[in-house]
Amino acid sequence: MPKMNIIQAVNDALMLAMRADPRVVVLGEDVGKFGGVFRATLGLQEAFGADRVIDTPLAESGIIGTAIGMAIYGTRPVAEIQFSDFIYPAFDQIVNELAKYRYRSGGEYPCPMVIRTPVGGGIRGGHYHSQSPEALFCHQAGLIVVQPSNPYDAKGLLLSAIASEDPVLVLEPKRIYRGPDHGTNWSAHPKGEVPAGEYRVPFGKAAIARELSGQGTPVTLITYGAMVHTCGKAAGLASAQGIDTELIDLRSLLPYDLEAICESAKKTGRVVVAHEAPRTCGYGAEIVAAVTEACFDWLEAPVLRVTGWDTPFPYALESAYLPDPARVFQALDRVARYK
């Protein structure tokens, strides 16, 4: 099976989709000749021409607005927003237009399209190249929001997104584009093995990134994106301290897999939710509330969050801002010891 990193997996999905369906077009800033600042669209313009792989003017609301107008006519656009930190000029088009088109038109104008955008910190990008805006978009009825944590899911989720009848926002954790951790690449990781042809990862289905071993106090750790790998390390640290972690990789943030979450929470009674984004009104608040509503009788400890701080994303002190394995471990330890 081919080995791919996330960029290659995204590129492979786009190549396959454009070859299979002439309605698929790609548009965004620098996506054509240059192949995108992260090279996700490399070679597409060469293969499919400048009319289908479109270098747009530098205007995010124009990229999304144009894509919406294409989608309602029957084209299948895949728009790239270069960094999610720059998505806000298009927020109106996404929230008020894209998300509501099917509903406001009584089902007459569905708007199936994809927005891909890199998210998250860990690349020394300061607060305009590092933010995690998922909560803002998960609050919008009508959108599907996904975030892969590995090359296999990146390709499978993107192919599902392009085939979807609904608008899908694909948040790509840029820190792990080329490897699950600094200094390592995907070739040594099982999820770096990516099937060559078309396959789909379904929406609304979480993955178990680490199963319970049956040794020690069981704890459920719920996360997504690059934090899956941070949390995996934390689970390793915890294992040495007698804590047995089931690690859930949500993959889909809207809709999310409540069933998988509850199944695990009822099994362990101890739950930690982790993400890079700020804590207050962050995505984790939804998961904590859902666990509390659905699994209260099974809980043995308060449900804890490990998150970025409620500050703008910093530059020099990035490592103090981002949750690291030690911080996640502390939370696992606290819920495991809670009596």
Partner: peptide, 15 residues
């Protein structure tokens, strides 16, 4: 908001 959308619809028509 309908203005960029009209551009996109025209683009799809041209394709």
């Amino acid at each position: 908001t309908q203005m960029p959308q009209a551009v996109g619809t025209a683009y799809a028509m041209a394709l």
